[in-house]
Every structure is written in structure tokens, then in C-alpha cells.
Nucleic acid binder design. Structure first.
Lengths: 222, 222
DNA sequence: TGACACACGTTTGGATCCAAAATCTAGGCC
DNA sequence: GGCCTAGATTTTGGATCCAAACGTGTGTCA
């Protein structure tokens, strides 16, 4: 008979969907560095089996969001202050390269969209929204760069430091937001002028300053 | 005793072992860029089921050795000439950072080992052996750097370009090997003197020169 | 009372079976 | 004769079941 105890198949839950769910949870701050991720728990919550969860955890690992130890399970990536410092130094060197690769290929439409995102950043007051918009701004400036190894590297660096960036912005307050906006405006101007040298200069300075300010707040680290 | 016939399950065939096998095959040149990797084929060859193979492929993906497309399977990472060029530019920026992090922590024993490896490079005549020794030399200079996100990035960059490096060395011949050795000697000297500035200078130049020479050989790319 | 050892529960790793998607092949139609 | 379509085969994705490893808690012995 109908024997439909279990619905057809929901068209496959998909490890991609599980990965998206966990990625959102980690980047959104629901899962914090060092938190253990139990396969069965996630599987039950999403109504899937453990197998796509395992696949998803591997994907997240390659995105720098989780760490995996044999027979001990997966945890959200946790970093020391020194590690975050080095990651910012990596960003200082890599992202200007991505910008230089991207610059010549950005269209006028991209420039307009960048202008609009930056305006939204300046009008914004919400912390979580700032993290999203800031990421969107920078990624947009790199969107002309089609070199996958470079872009996935950059994404990894952003991913693994997202939590510390949130903590930092949360306590740093909006007092020095004008500095961020000035830097963004200078980067944006260099982008519109397609001036790679200036772009690298201001972008590098932007990341470097953030690294140094972050270094003054050891309290956000374990 | 001597009950080590073999069978004691070896504690499971292990996705780690499968990954090691495939890694060796790719870095050794048995699998070439663009080659498709069929799960069942590998599973059969190693006497395991397909599941650890799937896990292994995810690991390799996070190491930059394979690419994965849903429902289409895994392939050995294949790069265009421009992508390899950018990866070398990434190396020019990242590896000097790794060297600077590593330098202060290297011991006298490390210095002796470096000297010995470099001597083996100069005595060596075999192509495949050179690839291994060259990698060993550079990785040794970075071995004091314990920052995982940085070191796994560097490893990824080496992994994904290994095949093109082999092709390049194969046709470039040993005519300009003296340049490599001079650069290595200068890097080694800077390491022993613990001079990070000079180390970054010569290492950056070493990678840059290789990138430019590689750019003169479009025939190694598809 | 403290420390070591053993056993149990929990969690991850692996094997087999089944479903869905993609590729390949063959046949028909234009 | 070439191209498009439809079915068959191949290959990947997912679910369930079973085995192995880690962590913990308790019990016993010095």
C-alpha cells in the first residue's frame, strides 16, 4: 500500500546543504571556536544521515572553518593570538595581489555596486550587518580575479578569523569607524581609477592597521 | 609470537592510507593534471570500500591536489599558465613570511641538515630526485614555522604546481642548475646568520626567477 | 585515601546496499 | 550522412548497519 512511512526522498538532502547550514552557523557566531561538532547531532537536526555530514565537515575543513582529528571528531577552528597575527600578515601580502589581478577586469557596474555597498556601510549601525557588508565590499573588489587558488585562499583567511573580527569590532566600538571608512574610500577611488599601485598601498595599510589594533586586544583570545 | 602475519586489521584500511597512496601517485607523476579518479577503481586496487576513498579525495582536495565537482567526480587539479603564474606570485609573497617566522627557531642541527641536503642537491643528477630534494630543502627552512594556516597554504601551492615544475625541470635541463645552487647557498647562509631580511630577499628572488623562466615555456601547459 | 585498571557508553570509521545523476551508445529522423 | 533523442550503463551520492577507538566512571587493591 502507500507504505509511505518515509517521504519519497526530499530530493536528496545533500552534503552541500549541510555544509551551507554549518557554514552559516559558524560564520554567524552560533558555533564558536573550539566547539565540537557531533555528526549525529547535526544529522538529526537536518533530517539527514551522518554520511553527508561527514562530507560537509571535510568541505568546511578545506575552507578553514573546521579542524579534524582522527577518531576524535571535528571542532570549529580555534586560533591563538599569534596565529591570527600571522594570518593578517598573510592577508597583507595576498589580498593586494588579488586586487591587482581583479582591478583591470572590474566593470563600471561593479564600481557602482561598490559605491553603494560602501554607502550602506557608512549608514549602518548594526554590528553583524557590518561584518557582512565589510566582507561584501572587499570580496567585490576581488570579484574580477578568477584565479581559484588565490580566491579560495583569501576566503579561507577571512573564514578562519571571522569570529575574532566580530569580537574585536564588538568591543572596539564604532569610535574609530571613520578610519575604516576613509580607508575604504581610498581603496574604492583607486579601484575606480584602476590604479593597482594605490590599491595595493591602501589595502595593505587597511589590513595592517587592523592587525595592529587587534594585537592590542588580547582579551578576545583564549 | 611473530603473529604479525598482516591481517590484524591493521586498524582499518584507513582513509589516511588511501590518501597517502593517491598523494604519492599524483606528486610522483603517475596521475597527471586533468586525469579523472574513479572511486571504485581506487577502492578495488587498495582492497577497501569506496567510502574511505571518498574521504581521501576530500582530504586531497583540501591539499590542492584534486578538484571535485558534484555528480561528476574528482580530477587531478589542472592549471592554466596564468594560474601557475599567479600561484608563483603567491609563493613570492607567502614563503618569505614563512621563512621569517621560521628563522629564529631553527637549531644548529637544522642548519647542518640543510647543508647536507643542499650538498645532495649539488651531487644529484636524477630529475625526480631533484624535485624531492628541492622540496625537502625549502620545507626544512620553513620547519620552524608552526603556524598551521601558513604552512598548509604553502604546501598547497607546492602540491598544485608539482607537475609543471617537473615538466619545466625536465626540459630546462641542468644547464642553469648553477643558478639554483647559488640561490640556495645564499638562502642557506642567511638562514645560518638568522638574517630574515636577506632570507626574504634571496628566497623571493629565487621564486621570482623560476616564475619568469617558467613563463618562457608555454609548451608545458595544456 | 589515592592511584591504577577494567568495563561500559558514546562517537567516529568502514562496508554494503540502494537511488539518482551523468555519460555513452545506438537508433531513428531529418 | 549528420544530428538529435532515448535508453542502457557507468559512476557518484545517500542510508543503514556493524566494528573499532576514545573518554569516563567506578571498583578494587596497595
Amino acid at each position: 500500500m502507500s507504505s509511505d512511512e518515509t517521504p519519497p526522498e526530499t530530493s536528496g538532502i545533500g552534503s552541500t546543504r549541510v555544509a551551507a547550514y554549518l557554514r552559516e552557523a559558524i560564520l554567524g557566531g552560533d558555533l564558536r571556536p573550539g566547539d565540537r561538532i557531533r555528526q549525529e547531532e547535526v544529522a538529526a537536526r537536518l533530517g539527514a544521515s551522518r554520511l553527508p555530514v561527514r562530507e560537509a565537515l571535510r568541505m568546511l575543513e578545506s575552507e578553514g572553518l573546521t579542524e579534524h582529528e582522527p577518531h576524535k571528531g571535528a571542532r570549529v577552528t580555534s586560533l591563538t593570538q599569534h596565529e591570527v597575527d600571522v594570518i593578517y600578515r598573510m592577508r597583507e601580502r595576498l589580498e593586494p595581489l588579488a586586487l591587482t589581478e581583479s582591478l583591470p577586469l572590474l566593470t563600471d557596474a561593479d564600481h557602482e555596486q561598490l559605491e553603494e555597498v560602501q554607502q550602506r556601510i557608512e549608514d549602518n549601525t548594526d554590528l553583524e550587518k557590518f561584518l557582512d557588508l565589510d566582507r561584501e565590499f572587499h570580496m567585490l573588489t576581488y570579484s574580477g580575479c578568477s584565479i581559484d587558488p588565490l580566491m579560495s585562499n583569501v576566503t579561507r583567511l577571512w573564514n578562519s578569523t571571522q569570529h575574532y573580527r566580530r569580537s574585536f569590532v564588538a568591543l572596539g566600538g564604532r569610535s574609530r569607524m571613520w578610519v575604516v571608512n576613509s580607508e575604504h574610500r581610498l581603496i574604492l577611488d583607486a579601484v575606480v581609477r584602476r590604479d593597482a599601485d594605490d590599491g595595493e598601498r591602501y589595502l595593505g595599510g587597511h589590513i595592517r592597521r587592523t592587525r595592529i589594533e587587534l594585537g592590542r586586544h588580547p582579551e578576545v583570545f583564549p
